[in-house]
Amino acid sequence: MTDEHRTPVSLSGLSSNDPRLQPAARNPELVERVISVCFIVGTLCLAGFGACYWIDAQPWKLGATLGGGLMFLGIGIVAWGKYLMPRGPFVEERHTLANSDADRQAFAAAIVERGGSVVQRRKLLGGLLGGGMGIFGVVVMFPLLRSLGPLPKRTLQHTDWRSGSYVVDQSGRRVEVGDLAVGSIETVFPEGTENSDRGQAVDQTVLIRVSNEAFTTMKGRETWAPHGYVAYSKVCTHLGCPVGLYEQELQLLVCPCHQSMFNVTNGAVPQFGPAPRPLPQLPLYVDSSGFLRSQSDYHQAVGPGFWERS
């Protein structure tokens, strides 16, 4: 007979020998024995946890003893509650939360009439205080927000690449025209920023050497890729992840975050995925000593879109 099928009774006024106060188990002695075993094993496990901690055992042993101990104790306690405590079911009356109409009206009257009239009689004071608090609220926002950080100004519009910046790799070594084999790729920075946060986050650029010595990505960029060295911003135009994967056969740069793919051969136009814009291309030249240098900064803002991006 399950508890589902018993008439629920109220707890109050129940005599202490009522069958509903008896344990639910048919064989309480057996259940008690099983629970005792649970408690003993749980206690041993927890003692084992202490021992494991003492001898600085591996983490899995700590977790196994702690978890096992808690599990056994928990199962024992739940079984105690479920099988050895009053079986019920018991019932409790619900009282309506709503008060009588008179009480409600008295409450509303206290707020509207007593309080409201005080404010309404002194409209000027109420207005002045309200205005003061309003201005305080606005004014308090200024230092709170403005102290948090600088204004963006135009810092997002440009990078640290300048006319004549040396192209250096992550260790700061200047890249020479013979350094990269055809088909290889390197992450480069303008000299001096390779160890800075901003350099890493904003100036990072991928340098790829393609086989075509007179490589042109698009019209108007004929001189940008000397000796097949083509450079794109490494900051994805979708959400700013580094475009870190280079698929050499298909000539694709792939962003591992959301799988935008940029075609290296035609100016990094997005060929697939959520990125809306090509990766900006960095115009390069080779100086008389054979070092790779940038002709200028990128011609557009790098990275993801924002309101002020023209």
Binding site: W60, L62, G67, G74, V78, W80, G81
Partner: peptide
Amino acid sequence: IAKTTGFLFIVGGITALLGAF
């Protein structure tokens, strides 16, 4: 109280076992 305390222990135990393994 008994059931819910036991259940707290069980949730803790499962978390510890997950953390271990």
